[in-house]
Design a protein around this nucleic acid. Structure first.
Lengths: 247, 247
DNA sequence: CGAAGTGTTGAACCCCTTCAATAGGCGTGG
DNA sequence: CCACGCCTATTGAAGGGGTTCAACACTTCG
């Protein structure tokens, strides 16, 4: 049944065909016309390889063309938290602009294509370029709104609602990229999901079993099919106080 | 002892003397010279009054000149979470730009002065204005980084570390605004703090007692004095695993 | 003063974690 | 092909951090 699934690589953004092409050093449309071979300069990253590490100097943002990634913050105490999952079209690295150093580490979850957007060039181009300016503001506004909802997720929701919200979140991400929002393959491990949702992996395992038992989802390894979208959305709205008793 | 405290009103940003004055409708420096009386158009808000509500149409951002505010998200289930506290110099409302509607509600915590920054004007002015462009990017980058740390706070830290982090956070906010980072008055209630830190008010009460007993802080109603900054910073770094046993 | 709101303290409970053991997938190599 | 080891995932039982419930103290204001 997995044959029907359109994976992200199929919706890869081609170089030069994105909102940021005017300030992209890879496709270089902003400066001069390049040959097709230049497109290859878009850096490919393997699964597990870091795009940048917390503390690294920051002189460019990154546009994720294909694949997926996770962004992690580490505390001095050694605790790590995944604070964002990235999908094609995302721009990564805004958090470190003020200090000039990355405030977090970003690790690829699969083989991915990434374009580099030098900050200096972004600035020089977006001044005088209304469309790019709009895109910058739109991008950061989405990021701020998402991180705000993430705070709500961690702060108010039960583990049940957290997992349901996560599935809805993924579903939306895939759907908005032209893929099926009903069935998809997870690009991250259980460990990553549990960390992102701030719960033990064991709890996540139990939740998956629970959701399957309730007939809301079907899971086979990293493949997920949402069989009852309505019920899932409802579960995502529950908070700590209001638990659904499902006999 | 509270007489020594410099409250935020003392560091109020005067109208026309801020990075955003070029696109401010209140001081209006961006368009034409105004008389002193025009400065009064900066809206004053009373404690408890909403600046905007979740779902309201968004056509301008808000610059907080004086006072303080809290931003809340409500779920359909009725749960509410304070996701940000605002202090003078903060720009409020970015999260709703994409949808054109506010994704959250902002309520004043005390009598405050607010300037309105129309989005359209912000855009038209920041095009071709390098300083304002820098300020916009710097502002959103700080907001993104802060929200990211907030996720880490909720996800990884114990209630102890959460409260310690909050005190360090407030201390930094006051210090960066020219006030004492060692002693200040809280502008928010215990209820607000507990909600922001995702804990019961009873837990917060116990923490305050605990911190005082350990000699790290002195608290008298809304007045806080940090007596051991080093210890506080150390406590802020602890996560769920590593608890300091303090005899 | 009395009522309402805010903050504190005590004790029982519970959601989730932690610890521990088992099962299953996958690459490697015999 | 199967064995072996490593890693990921699942499942069960016990324990703990924080919540919830309840009562009390303090402040504020009409």
């Amino acid at each position: 049944m997995r044959d029907n699934i359109i994976d992200f690589p199929a919706v890869t953004r081609s170089c030069g065909d994105c909102e940021w092409s005017d300030c992209c050093v890879n496709c270089g449309l902003g400066s001069a016309k390049h040959t097709a071979s230049d497109a290859g300069r878009s850096v490919a990253h393997r699964s597990g390889s870091p795009l940048f590490r917390q503390g690294d100097p920051l002189d460019c943002l990154y546009f994720l063309r294909s694949g997926s990634a996770k962004t992690i913050i580490s505390t001095r105490a050694g605790a790590e938290q995944i604070v964002t999952f990235h999908f094609p079209g995302d721009v990564i690295g805004f958090d470190g602009i003020t200090s000039g150093r990355h405030q977090s580490s970003t690790i690829m979850l699969e083989s991915s294509g990434v374009c580099c957007i030098p900050l200096a060039k972004l600035k020089s181009v977006s001044i005088n370029n209304t469309n790019l300016w709009d895109e910058v503001i739109r991008t950061v506004a989405v990021e701020i709104a998402e991180k705000q909802n993430y705070g709500l997720l961690l702060g108010q929701k039960s583990v049940h609602a957290r997992f349901a919200t996560f599935l809805c979140y993924l579903s939306g991400k895939y759907a908005s990229r032209g893929c099926s929002g009903r069935e998809f393959n997870l690009s991250m491990s259980r460990q990553d999901i549990a960390n992102y949702l701030s719960m033990a992996v064991e709890t996540l395992s139990r939740l998956i079993g629970d959701f399957q038992h309730k007939g809301v989802i079907e899971v086979d390894r990293r493949f997920v099919r949402i069989t009852d979208v309505g019920a899932l959305k409802e579960m995502a709205q529950e908070d700590h106080e209001a638990h659904a008793s499902c006999g």
